[in-house]
């Protein structure tokens, strides 16, 4: 049987620049790497990370294609599955020479963290998966929460938000179709996105299936489930918990999909309780 392709770790400074890595906190502390979810960037963690900066080395980064990452590195073929993002994450751990790191991951990044932990278990000491979902679309005997048609409609919604006004209309209106960045400025200054990449990344996020990867995790794992999370319903959290051997499941009182913004204290407390 053929062996897996060797991971192409870019040279150290390269991956750190490509993913816009920022290192904060206590250099003596246990490393904690925060991986943001779909729709935003590392800014999403700004209410949670202060809780850990005193006693942890805090590492923040942007998925390639998001926030301040190197957009030119977004090769749609390479980033057509979560593996390339996982390679980047392992690349960051390697470049910073981290071991026993806690990977705190949200939404789509939970599966990226799972792949990274399977790929480099010697560097990852714990996984904290916030609102994980290995597959969003319902399947036989599996509740993901969505139908394919819902995802197609989401792609249309993204079009309407990113392409509809900001990128297609604005340059036309402003008479500068050659300078799309003028249109770009109309989009939100937080969680900046490139419209075309966002649409592609939405497909990768919502159409991937990583259920089979969960069983390979040997890293201690905390599954954090919010109450009433429409994106990652309770059944999905239970599925992830039951599929990762030895994992723990905690259900927060916080509602919605982004507890690190809506209830950072509660999330921090759950993490501290688990990590001890």
């Amino acid at each position: 049987m053929a062996l897996p392709t060797p991971v192409e770790h870019a040279t150290a400074p390269d991956v750190l620049r490509r993913t816009n890595v920022r290192v904060l906190g206590n250099p003596e502390g246990r490393p904690m790497v925060f991986a943001h979810g779909f729709g935003c960037s590392q800014e999403m963690w700004r209410l949670l990370t202060p809780e850990f900066e005193r006693d942890h080395l805090v590492v923040l980064f942007d998925l390639v294609g998001a926030g301040g990452s190197d957009l030119s590195a977004y090769d749609r073929g390479r980033y057509d599955s979560l593996h390339a993002h996982a390679d980047d994450l392992v690349g960051i751990l390697t470049a910073l020479d981290l071991s026993d790191a806690v990977l705190v991951a949200h939404s789509v990044s939970t599966m990226i963290a799972v792949l990274a932990a399977v790929q480099a278990p010697e560097r990852v000491g714990a996984l904290v998966l916030v609102g994980p979902s290995p597959r969003y679309i319902n399947d036989e005997g599996y509740v993901g929460g969505f139908e394919r048609a819902d995802i197609d409609a989401l792609l249309e919604t993204l079009d309407a938000n990113y392409l509809g006004w900001s990128s297609v209309m604005a340059p036309v209106v402003m008479g500068n179709p050659d300078r799309p960045e003028l249109g770009q400025e109309l989009t939100d200054s937080f969680c900046r996105v490139d419209p075309a990449i966002a649409a592609h990344f939405a497909r990768v996020t919502f159409l991937s299936d990583n259920r089979k990867d969960l069983a390979a995790v040997r890293t201690p794992t905390l599954v954090v489930q919010c109450s009433d999370d429409v994106i990652a319903p309770h059944e999905v959290g239970v599925f992830v918990h039951e599929s990762i051997p030895g994992s723990e499941l905690v259900v927060l009182a916080a509602t919605g999909h982004v507890p690190h913004l809506s209830a950072p204290e509660e999330l921090a407390a759950a993490m501290r309780h688990y990590l001890g």
Binding site: G39, E43, F146, A153, L154, N161, F190, D229, V230, H257
Partner: peptide
């Protein structure tokens, strides 16, 4: 459903981080 996906992954985070969201397309 698609609107909720966008609302949760994008609209709410931006609102919380920035205090406002302008002209987001929802259904």
């Amino acid at each position: 459903t698609a609107g909720r996906l966008f609302y949760q992954t994008r609209y709410l985070p931006v609102l919380r981080l920035q205090g406002e969201v302008r002209e987001a397309a929802l259904t």
